[in-house]
Design a protein around this nucleic acid. Structure first.
Lengths: 179, 179
DNA sequence: TCAAACTTTCAGAACATTCTGAAAGTTTAA
DNA sequence: TTAAACTTTCAGAATGTTCTGAAAGTTTGA
């Protein structure tokens, strides 16, 4: 499992990004390696390619599975498990996005909701609640919107994104027509 | 600087989230505290409210400034600096979003671009390049789109988000009209 | 120019995360 | 069954991050 220099730079970069994307360096490298390889890889191949312990690979795979980012494959006459990315690049992006929302936004929303149920009894508490309401409403609008966008087919979503700020014009047009 | 229990739970939660949002726990707490307080706070007030050292506050403020999330205020007859969040909740969201893009997406895009310039000389390298191209194109489409959306006014963007998956119908309608 | 009132910096301590490798657990084929 | 071929787990080592507090730096008014 020797990597070409391009592949290596990509894999190492995925490692650097790993921590920013929500998992750690090695998990990032592992995922990069799986994406960039046409063939599914065994745990040992991964551990040799990245120079990490077999145990670490096992934990990393578990983490990637919790993000629903890898699939296990089996080869005939071979007991080892072989790992490969789950789904297309598009699906991978959706998953990372969704999973991060679950970890970053959902807990905040539920805390805000429960705080908003209490009755403020001082001036400060009142101000605080107003701010919390603002944040709550914004996060809610965004998550709803994101969920709806995810329900669109990749093609539709692609058209939409390519349209960019143009959507705004299309909507204005609609408003005028309906008046 | 005693906090009511609601305020405290919010501030502590911002701390938990801090690390996920790209800064650390204390920086998250500091920012939460500033958001939730109507009055601007001095470094000492922050350090007392959160039970952290004065030095730590100084570093945290610096970090928040690098995210363009706080503003400094001065009061007459007082040499201390008073800190307050920069901009509305809306702007804060935009900033966090933008700053994260810079840290998480931009470096990846530039690495991918430079890798795509090289000519693949093996089957593996070819496959690897195809994948990198896919990721590159996806990230580019998304960042372009995000930039365009940010150019819209908050109101327009709000209408758009409320419309949700409905945009898709509006676009279909446009296509039919133009045919 | 000075010193009081602040802010910043940074070495080392405290704390948190990640990694290794050996031991324990699981699965399969005979 | 058994044992070979794997995977998982987890204590402790290695590494990385954050925090404190004392020292250094800066600004201001007199």
């Amino acid at each position: 499992m020797l990597m070409s220099s391009q592949v290596e730079s990509f894999v190492m970069h995925c490692g650097e990004m790993g921590s920013r994307w929500g998992f750690n360096r090695t998990v990032g490298q592992m995922y990069g390696l799986l994406i960039i390889n046409e063939q599914a890889l065994s745990a040992i191949q991964i551990s040799e390619a990245l120079n990490i312990s077999r145990g670490n690979v096992s934990m990393g795979i578990k983490e990637l599975q919790s993000w629903r980012l890898v699939q296990v494959q089996h080869k005939p006459k071979d007991r080892k498990e072989y790992y490969t990315p789950a789904g297309s690049i598009w699906e991978m992006a959706i998953r990372v996005f969704e999973e991060r929302r679950k970890r970053e936004v959902d807990p905040t929303l539920s805390l805000l909701r429960s705080n908003l149920l209490e009755t403020p009894n001082t001036q400060e508490a009142l101000f605080a609640q107003e701010k919390m309401k603002e944040i709550h409403d914004l996060l809610e609008t965004i998550t709803h919107w994101a969920a709806e966008l995810q329900s669109l087919s990749p093609e539709k979503l692609n058209t939409l994104m390519k349209l960019g700020a143009g959507v705004s014009k299309v909507i204005d047009m609609k408003d005028r027509l309906l008046k």
